[in-house]
């Protein structure tokens, strides 16, 4: 038997007895970042595949959520900082070793690009959604008047539209980096055994793509588009389940600290939350609904879509919370 105590007294807030320095801001950002990355990826990718007019929601309309999600995510990230007035220090250096530096620079590139991408579709957006309700028309007119106040904006718009293809390529690459970075951010911490798995990058990427596919499926009215994204989502859910299984296999075949990390989910304190909310409600049940829908059963699309989105958010909360508990023992 062995027992360890601090005899000098040590009770640093949020560090003792277990680490809890990252609160709601980080999982919320990871969710929004993953969602934005997924939406942007599908939008730019489908544009490059020439489906601009076939999959209007994917390419044009859903991408309007991207800048909103990114800005909200950035606000969450900013709120997480404890020395906030110095945040600009992120942009006075590039540190290749630090995933957070990579993320900061990726966000710096993809956020303005996502605004430009939406800007290039703004006129189409306005003409597609006006004439339905009075207050919507008012809001759209107000936006158009502000955006196109100066003459050069229209010239700039023509330039942006002309360069859409280049922008799409940049967006495909950047959204991929953003999506996978949300996982790599955590996996780079070797001191937290639960996070220190190279599966986390692909897992968070797939999860982000899956939430994005669910949202597109929910938003679209087009039958083909809805079916396609239902199928894509089903594939992604399968992949996610495989990666989760693989992650636990890796942990259980690893060192003692990794085994203990896995035990948190296999009998430990996160077991119920993880298997019910993330795997059950977030993956398996929506997958069953999707299959039933594809087989012709009438199921409202909002149901699986919402479950996947909620599952994705809870997944990130659990991973961030549980990871901070795991540590090296000596």
């Amino acid at each position: 038997m062995s027992e360890e105590i601090f005899v000098s007294g040590r009770n640093i807030p949020n560090i003792d007895p277990v680490l809890h320095i990252w609160h709601w801001q980080i999982p919320v950002y990871l969710f929004l970042g993953g969602l934005a990355a997924g939406l942007m990826f599908f939008s730019a990718f489908n544009y490059l595949r020439g489906r601009e007019n076939k999959h209007e929601v994917t390419v044009k309309w859903a991408s309007f959520i991207v800048p909103i999600a990114l800005v909200l995510g950035l606000i969450a990230l900013f709120l997480d900082l404890k020395h906030q007035l110095y945040f600009w220090r992120l942009y006075t250096t590039i540190r290749f070793d630090s995933p957070m530096s990579w993320g900061a620079w990726t966000l710096m590139a993809i956020t303005p690009l996502s605004f430009l991408w939406c800007f290039s579709y703004l006129r189409e957006f306005v003409s597609a959604f006006s004439g339905k309700k009075k207050w919507i028309d008012k809001a759209l007119n107000f936006t158009m008047n502000i955006v196109f106040k100066f003459k050069w904006v229209a010239t700039f718009e023509a330039y942006v539209i002309k360069n859409r293809k280049a922008m799409a390529w940049a967006n495909v690459i950047l959204s991929f980096i953003l999506g996978i970075y949300t996982g790599i951010l955590l996996s780079a911490f070797n001191a937290r055994p639960l996070w220190n798995s190279s599966i986390l990058g692909p897992l968070f990427l797939v999860s982000g793509l899956s939430t994005a596919a669910a949202l597109i499926m929910w938003l679209t009215k087009d039958k083909d588009e809805r079916k396609l994204f239902g199928q894509i989502d089903l594939l992604l859910i399968g992949l996610e389940l495989f990666l989760i299984t693989h992650m636990f296999m890796g942990f259980l075949a690893g060192s003692q600290v990794k085994i203990e990390a896995a035990q948190l989910f296999l009998g430990g304190e996160f077991t119920a939350a993880f298997w019910t909310f993330v795997v059950g409600i977030g993956l398996v049940i929506p997958a069953i609904f999707e299959i039933m829908k594809l087989r012709g059963y009438k199921i409202p699309v909002a149901l699986p879509a919402m479950l996947i989105l909620i599952g994705g958010l809870i997944f990130r909360f659990i991973m961030v919370d549980a990871g901070q508990i795991t540590r090296f023992l000596y």
Binding site: D16, L19, Q84, F87, R89, A191, R327
Partner: peptide, 26 residues
Amino acid sequence: KGKCIGCGACIQACPYDARYFHPKGY
């Protein structure tokens, strides 16, 4: 101090929990 943004990455990275946030943020 003047470069630290208080993101907490180093606290997460330390296997010895040797770092903490000073009440001033860094």
